[in-house]
Structure formats: structure tokens, C-alpha cells
Design a protein around this nucleic acid. Structure first.
Lengths: 188, 188
DNA sequence: TAGGCTGCCTAACGGTCGTAGGCAAATGAC
DNA sequence: GTCATTTGCCTACGACCGTTAGGCAGCCTA
């Protein structure tokens, strides 16, 4: 019988497809092994536990997402950068609901997801360069930015905006515009 | 052997205490039965399944949370109402992390959590009465409000703000003030 | 070609959710 | 007060999951 040729990277990559296809709840050794054509116990050569698998998926998603955001930000500044930043997150949540949900998995303090999280904070700081936010206030503005983008994508994905008119895509530009206004008048 | 005197309400109430004490991950028939001094199978007379239990907990939390927000809003308007609204959510998330996490459980379209969700939207509309947001734009402003408050509480609870200075309680008033500014200049 | 390493296997344990059927405690009729 | 009915909690069980231990076979190196 030929071998499957697994590795930690291959296992995590398959897990990314799994959560997109079956949802975050299906993330576990057993369904993942089925998808890889392998027995569940075989995964433990490459992943320490189900929790370790989740941490790997979370870190991979945060990295992939940071790459997308960085691409979207390239060559833009000011309000255009803000819109690109916000859209990058929301578009990713739409294209990969399972992965986006995985980005919010709880992880330990020395998980590889932590440096990936710092990348996201640095990208938010880059957006702020287009606004006159005082240095000492930037942390607060970064948190405003992150909270709003994450909150909107998260509530929209949960269907919280689904039962009222108009659809969430109508509100999104208005919400981002309000965020732009808040950042522009931050100094006052 | 005397009976335990359970009911759906009693089971859900015990589940609320369970998630606060042990975290949302511990929400299941087995730990809940242990807490109630009962065998897991006995719960199925009062709750249809683990998913039904989660829906019941989510609805109960959303109701309790809406009560708190309504209390906080009573007799206030304008920026004071906005602060009270936002603080009510964040304070609840601090006091009852497990319950707050349960408020974001995915629920079906005809769950009792749906009307509870409408209560929250109505409360946000009440806050907007203190601002000159045009009728047709209120949906968008409500979504801005909800996204920001939920996003901040959620990221703070996940520890996303824990590894940078200053602490999240420093940023919160600044973030709410920015939200106030955005709502006040919405008409433009 | 022979040896060793490594990867995937089978087998098994303890745990979970959920179902079926039984027994006994509470409730209501007489 | 006794008896019948309902009802709530029980035991027992099946299916599945995460995880560990140990074995066998495929691959790389000498």
C-alpha cells in the first residue's frame, strides 16, 4: 500500500478546505482523516492533538488573511486604503466563511497565531497613516478599526442582518464612510 | 429516591450558570447533568438535544442582556444613552463571559432567539433618537452600532487587546466617543 | 542488496450524545 | 385511604469521537 505523503503543512492545508466545505464544527481529526483518505490515528504523527490542529488552522488563516489585506493596501492611502482594508476582510469572510470563523478560534499565548495577529495590527496602523490621528491615540484607533470590521463581518456571517431590509451589502459602504468620518475628525 | 424537579426553564437556568463557571465549551448534556445531580439521559425529557439546549441558552442570554440594556437606557438620551448602551453590553461581557459568548451561538431561523434579537435592534433604534440620523439611514446606523459594540467586546474577550499597551479599558471611552462623533455627523 | 527509519496501520480505552425500555414517585379518582 | 394513571428519572446500550500503544510495511541510505 503506497503512503499518503502527509506532513503538518499538508494536514493543515486539508483542514482549511475542510472548514470551508463543511463548516468550522467539522474541524476534527476524524473528518479530516476521512478527507485525506487516512485513518484518524495517522494524523497524530503530524499534529499533536485536536487543539493543536485548531491552532495550526487559525495561524494559517490569519497569515493568509494578512497577505490579502497587505495586497489590497498596496499603493493606496487615505479613504481608499480604508475601504480596501475593510473590504479585504469582508470579502474574505464571504469567500471563506469557515476559514474566517477559524480566525477567531481561541489560541494559547505562544501559538504561531500570535505573530500573525501582530501583522494585522501593523496593517491597521498603515491605514491610519492616511489620517491625522496623534501617535498616542493610534492604539485606540486601531482597536476601533478592528472592532468595527470584525464585528460587521461576524454579525453578517451569523445572519444577524439577514432578517431586515435592505441587505447587508447596502449598509457596508455607509458604515465604512462613517468610520472614515470618525477617523478624519479624531483629532478634535 | 426523591425527584430532582427539573423543567426546561430549570435546565436552561443551570446551563447559564454552567457556561459562566466552566466556559462555553463545557455546555453539553453531560456536564450539565453532573451539575444538576442527574444522569445525562434524564435531560432529554426537557430538552430535545444538545443543539436545542444551546438554542435555549442563547435565547435566555439575549433576553437577559436586552433587559439590562433597556434598564441602562431608561431616562437617558443623546450621548449619555449611547454610552449607557455600549457600556451595558461590555459590562455584561465582563461579568458573564460564558453567557456573552453563548449569545453568539448560531441558531435556526425560528429559534426563540430571533425575537430576542429584534429587541436588541429596537434598543439600538432608541439610542438613535438622540441623533439626527435620517429615517432611511437608521438601519445602517443600527448596524454600525451593533457591529462596533459587539466587535469590541468580542475581541477584548478573546484577548486580542491583551498584548499591547494600554489596556482595553483605556480605549473604550475613546472608541465610544468616536462612534458618537460619527453618529452626530451622519447627516452630511 | 541489506538495514534502519519512519509513516500509516489495527486495536483498544474512555468519553460523548442520543435512544429504548423499565421502575418508581407523584397525581388524581373514587 | 386505596388504586390507576401519568410522568420523571433511571439503567443499558449503540454509534461516534479523540487519543494512545504497538506492529508491519514502504522508503532512504550504505
Amino acid at each position: 500500500m503506497p503512503r499518503a505523503g502527509l506532513s503538518r503543512a499538508a494536514v493543515v492545508a486539508a483542514a482549511l478546505d475542510l472548514v470551508d466545505a463543511e463548516g468550522l464544527d467539522a474541524l476534527g481529526p476524524s473528518p479530516l482523516a476521512a478527507r485525506l483518505g487516512v485513518r484518524p490515528a495517522s494524523l497524530y504523527s503530524h499534529v499533536a492533538s485536536a487543539a493543536d490542529l485548531r491552532e495550526g488552522v487559525c495561524a494559517a488563516v490569519l497569515d493568509e488573511l494578512a497577505d490579502r489585506v497587505a495586497d489590497a493596501l498596496a499603493g493606496r492611502s487615505g479613504e481608499a486604503a480604508l475601504r480596501a482594508f475593510a473590504d479585504a476582510y469582508r470579502d474574505y469572510a464571504h469567500a471563506h466563511p469557515g476559514r474566517y470563523a477559524a480566525s477567531r478560534l481561541p489560541v494559547g499565548p505562544d501559538s504561531p497565531a500570535v505573530p500573525a495577529g501582530r501583522r494585522h495590527a501593523a496593517l491597521a496602523v498603515a491605514v491610519l497613516r492616511g489620517y491625522a490621528v496623534p501617535e498616542a491615540e493610534q492604539v485606540h484607533a486601531v482597536r476601533l478599526l478592528g472592532s468595527l470590521v470584525h464585528g460587521y463581518a461576524s454579525l453578517e456571517q451569523a445572519g444577524a442582518f439577514g432578517h431586515s431590509e435592505p441587505g447587508p451589502e447596502q449598509s457596508w459602504p455607509r458604515v465604512v464612510a462613517a468610520l472614515d468620518a470618525a477617523l478624519r475628525t479624531w483629532s478634535t
